[in-house]
Simulated assay, not measured.
Amino acid sequence: MNAGARRARKIVRELRREAREGELNVVSLIDIFAILVFYLLVNALVVEILPSPKALQLPESIAKEDPKQTVLILITPEDIIVDTKRVMSTADAAASTTTVLPDLKYKLNEETLMQVDGAGAGQLTRGDVNIMADKSIPFHVLKKVMATCSDTRFAKISLAVIEKEGAEAL
């Protein structure tokens, strides 16, 4: 063999070796991304977040308790909404002379009654209810909504608020 052919073969071998060194093993990257996606899917289902309409401005509080997934009553300056369905206008609620709002009571009575844990056979409740009200809503309207909730046998009434800045120190 002549020296030129050997040199050519040596150059070809070096080029092949350099090409192999640049390879990237994507199997391990796929495994890492699969684990990451699985982790994000599992943890995304744990968080419970109440819907926050942009038109609603919640009051601030130092309360630390997280909201539960329950019946949700939204009180906007225009409407009272139960679980995304409009029940009545806020103006009608303010103008009402009764402490219990009939339209709201009718809608809340659609929720099923359940047995109270550890209580007698006759004690039934509808569970918990969360109220999200704009901070501009007059208290007498909020009081009527809460009275209607207790009249329809909700065991616990919670008001949604925004955590105040600096509340961590308390």
Results as ranks from 00 to 15, higher is better:
Phe154Gln: 02
Arg16Lys: 15
Ala44Leu: 12
Phe154Thr: 09
Ile137Met: 07
Ile32Gln: 09
Thr90Lys: 04
Glu18Arg: 13
Ile73Arg: 00
Lys135Phe: 08
Thr70Gly: 03
Ala55Cys: 08
Ile30Pro: 09
Cys149Asp: 00
Leu159Gly: 03
Ser61Met: 05
Arg9Leu: 15
Ile49Val: 15
Glu111His: 08
Arg7Ile: 04
Asp31Glu: 14
Ile35Met: 01
Ala147Cys: 08
Gly4Tyr: 10
Arg126Glu: 00
Val116Glu: 10
Ile157Met: 01
Tyr39Ser: 13
Ala91Met: 10
Tyr106Ser: 09
Gly166Trp: 05
Ala5Trp: 05
Met132Ile: 04
Lys10Gln: 12
Ala55Lys: 00
Ile32Cys: 07
Arg153Asn: 14
Val37Pro: 05
Lys68Phe: 12
Pro67Gln: 04
Lys10Ala: 13
Glu163Cys: 03
Gly118Arg: 07
Glu65Thr: 14
Ile137Ser: 06
Met88Asn: 00
Ser150Thr: 15
Val37Gly: 02
Ala63Asp: 12
Lys64Thr: 14
Leu58Arg: 10
Asn43His: 10
Leu108Trp: 07
Thr90Asn: 03
Arg7Ala: 13
Ala133Ile: 02
Ala63Val: 15
Leu56Lys: 07
Met132Phe: 03
Leu101Ile: 15
Met114Gly: 07
Ser52Asp: 02
Ile162Ala: 06
Leu15Cys: 10
Thr76Phe: 01
Arg9Asn: 13
Met1Leu: 11
Ile81Tyr: 05
Tyr39Asp: 06
Met132Pro: 03
Gln69Ala: 12
Ser89Thr: 14
Val87Cys: 01
Val161Leu: 02
Ala121Tyr: 09
Leu159Arg: 04
Ile11Pro: 01
Ala91Asn: 09
Val27Met: 06
Val71Ser: 00
Glu165Cys: 05
Ala3Ile: 15
Pro59Gln: 01
Ser136Glu: 07
Arg86Ala: 07
Asp31Phe: 09
Leu45Val: 15
Phe154Ile: 06
Glu168Tyr: 02
Lys10Cys: 07
Val100Thr: 14
Pro53Asn: 05
Val87Ser: 00
Val116Pro: 12
Arg6Asn: 12
Ala147Met: 13
Gly127Asp: 03
Phe154Glu: 06
Thr99Trp: 11
Asp92Glu: 15
Gln123Tyr: 11
Lys143Trp: 05
Ser136Gly: 11
Gln69Pro: 14
Val27Arg: 10
Val141Ala: 00
Ala44His: 11
Ile80Ser: 03
Val37Gln: 04
Gly118Asn: 06
Ala19Pro: 09
Asp92Ile: 03
Lys54Phe: 11
Gly166Lys: 04
Ala5Asp: 15
Thr152Ser: 12
Pro77Val: 02
Phe154Lys: 00
Ile162Trp: 07
Ser52Lys: 02
Leu170Ala: 04
Ile157Thr: 09
Ala147Asn: 13
Gln123Leu: 14
Glu48Asn: 14
Arg13Pro: 10
Lys107Trp: 01
Asp92Gln: 11
Lys156Ala: 09
Val100Trp: 05
Ile62Gly: 11
Ile162His: 06
Leu124Cys: 08
Lys85Asn: 09
Thr148Gly: 11
Met132Asn: 02
Gly4Thr: 13
Ala169Asp: 15
Gly118Val: 06
Arg153His: 13
Ala3Thr: 15
Ser89Trp: 04
Leu45Ser: 14
Val145Gln: 02
Thr148Tyr: 00
Tyr106Asn: 07
Ile73Tyr: 07
Thr76Val: 09
Ser89Gln: 05
Ile162Gly: 03
Thr97Leu: 14
Ser136Asp: 10
Glu78Met: 04
Ala121Leu: 11
Lys164Cys: 10
